[in-house]
Write a protein that binds this DNA or RNA. Structure first.
Length: 559
RNA sequence: GGCGCGGUAGCCAAGUGGUUAGGCAACGGUUUGCAAAACCGUCAAACGUCGGUUCGAAUCCGAUCCGCGCCUCCA
């Protein structure tokens, strides 16, 4: 039974889909704005959604998750501008000297690469290519205009003399419920641009008009529409939109309302986002979606559960480029490729090979905490994540070496089940990952104390695979093996061994060669020729194969 | 100013009234020709401070100090 902190009700609630009988649930996650590379804070937020989704899947639900791509962009930091400010995407476009659609496509592609490296479920397998699961805002302007038109018709919105459209907050009494903001508290009159014609300062823009804006759609003609969209728009609204709306672009909030409705339906089970989205973004989404609902008895909030992740801080504070505490995901994956040699050096100094952070390590670092708690990202945290992942990975690799046919012992099965139950219980307690991970380490420690039969190992692998269906930090490939003691002893007197000089001259990563070298090394050790033995190990190490002497034989491992 | 969150051992981090959280690091030991992995032990009679309630408080109440976030750019 999954319990979630619902930020709409502010309570810890037992999750139950809108349609209690359904085993399929709908999840909308506010996605990236593609005007720059995603930073680790963005990624942490998407990973909260990913863990939620995978937890639901582990509990037996099918999850239909939609995560949008905001390619219209938002305002700059020009606080006084509101609907007249320059779009961030346009700003990036100006800097890159190309058109905004191309800039968005460029950063979207970069995002998909980073998200794939971080193993976001929604970018895996067939989901990666299913367009409706990651809809672009620019491809849903028809749906947005339909909603805007409907809001005007129903009296929830009004156009001004410029051709812009505002949502009339006074028409939606529940406005402020999610964020806990009392309307009177909202500073009236502040931050309102001169040209604005809002009836109330708290009203927010659904449609904006700005001649300087690069992306523009004409609601009364084909100008500005990407191919096919205008026709689709006309089919959706044969009589056209309110004549007072002029060529412009959609406000930010209407995007998510329209795309959620288009791809998941009028009412959804879960909606996720970062804590900063609570106000105004999600507050506005709720208001719009309710105002535009076509169904009778529409719920006040179109999403049953709202899950918000607290922000990621770096060194205890909000990330800041100025303080050097701003990191994109790709910078950590490969600092040198991002012109950050100093970062590579710093990472190399703390034990990261080639000064690169493996994506699974970053993933672990970003998920190994409670989403209802702010996370403080530091280099120490990264180093700790690396050790933790390696501990689980090492145990997993050793299991792969001995896994095979056969029944698992009762004690092992009981232990595995107990640990998995604890893992699940942790996740079910509002996605309490620290508790879930404690169960994983208990499992690893217990396995380390046992001598496992092939059947035991296979059972353990099956359990860890299920656990890792949520964590997804393991490398499942077989990357190590053991040359058994009997095999080593067969060649005691150096007979039947391939020519050592020839083997050492070759650098082919061939398994037979590696085994031959292991046999040679063993023979050298028998003769107490440790110099040759160490030289062979050193050579293999340089070629990416490390050797470990065990009671049962010699383990080789690919790095 | 308004709203909200947090301060738990060197570090990260569970824990909402009584019972071992867990991990990382460091150090000592076991094992090893060396190493790796692993295990055992130490750091750990930890809960910002002061006071109160209680048989009993990290946990409840009050005060106080410090840090952080949001308040229409933001995951």
């Amino acid at each position: 039974m999954l319990k979630l902190k619902n930020s709409y009700t502010k309570k810890l609630e037992t999750f139950e889909p809108c349609d209690a009988a359904s085993k399929t649930v709908t999840l909308y996650s506010c996605g990236p704005t593609v005007y720059s590379f995603a930073h680790i804070g963005n990624m942490k937020s998407f990973l909260v959604a990913d863990i939620l989704r995978r937890t639901l899947e582990k509990l037996g639900y099918r999850v239909r998750q939609v995560m949008n791509i905001t390619d219209v962009g938002h305002m700059t930091e020009d606080h006084l501008a509101d609907a007249t400010g320059e779009d961030k995407l346009a700003k990036a476009a100006r800097e890159l000297g190309t058109d905004p659609y191309k800039v968005a496509a460029y950063f979207e592609e970069a995002f998909v690469r980073d998200a794939t490296a971080l193993r976001l479920s929604i970018y895996k397998g067939s989901e990666a290519i299913e367009k409706t699961l990651h809809p672009r805002a620019t491809a849903h302007v028809p749906e947005m205009l339909v909603m805007i038109d409907r809001l005007i018709t129903r009296g929830y919105a009004y156009p001004d003399s410029q051709g812009q459209v505002y949502f009339d907050v006074s028409k939606f009494p529940a406005y402020g419920h999610l964020s806990g903001k009392v309307l009177d508290d909202l500073e009236a009159g502040a931050r309102i641009a001169v040209r604005e014609e809002k009836r109330d300062p708290r009203d927010f823009a659904l449609w904006k008009v700005d001649d300087k804006h690069l992306m523009k759609w004409d609601p009364h003609g084909p100008e500005g529409w990407p191919s096919g969209d205008y026709e689709r728009f006309k089919a959706l609204l044969p009589n056209g939109v309110d004549a007072r709306i002029k060529a412009g672009f959609p406000g930010w909030h209407i995007e998510c309302s329209a795309m959620s409705r288009a791809h998941l339906g009028p009412v959804i089970d879960l909606h996720t986002g970062g804590e900063d989205n609570i106000f105004p973004h999600h507050e506005c989404e709720i208001a719009q979606s309710f105002g535009a609902a076509e169904e009778a008895n529409a719920p006040v909030s179109f999403a049953k559960y709202w899950v918000h992740g607290r922000h990621l801080l770096v060194d205890g504070k909000k990330m800041s480029k100025r303080d050097g505490t701003f990191f994109t995901a790709r910078e950590l994956f490969d600092p040198r490729a991002c012109d950050r040699d100093e970062l590579a050096q710093r990472l190399a100094a703390t034990g990261f090979e080639d000064g690169k952070v493996p994506p699974t390590v970053l993933r672990y670092a970003l998920i190994a905490n409670q989403h209802v708690q702010p996370m403080n990202f530091t280099f120490d945290v990264l180093v700790q994540a690396k050790s933790n992942v390696e501990r689980i990975q090492t145990r997993y690799a050793h299991l792969l070496e001995v896994a095979g046919e056969g029944e698992a012992s009762k004690e092992v099965v009981a232990m595995l089940n107990a640990c998995e139950a604890e893992f699940d219980a942790g996740l079910c307690d509002n996605l309490n990952m620290p508790v879930a991970l404690a169960a994983v380490f208990k499992l690893v420690a217990d396995l380390n104390l046992r001598t496992l039969s092939p059947g035991d190992a296979s059972a353990a692998i099956a359990t860890i695979d299920r656990i890792d269906s949520v964590l997804d930090v393991l490398d499942r490939r077989i990357r190590s093996g053991i040359v058994a003691q009997e095999r080593l002893n067969k060649n005691e007197d150096d007979k039947n061994l391939d020519d050592l000089a020839e083997l050492r001259a070759s650098t082919s990563p061939d398994a037979a060669r590696v085994e031959s070298l292991i046999l040679h090394r063993h023979a050298s050790k028998k003769r107490k020729d440790f110099a040759t033995a160490d030289a062979i190990r050193k050579e293999l190490d340089a070629q990416g194969v490390s050797l470990e002497d065990l009671p049962a034989g010699v383990r080789w491992r690919l790095k």
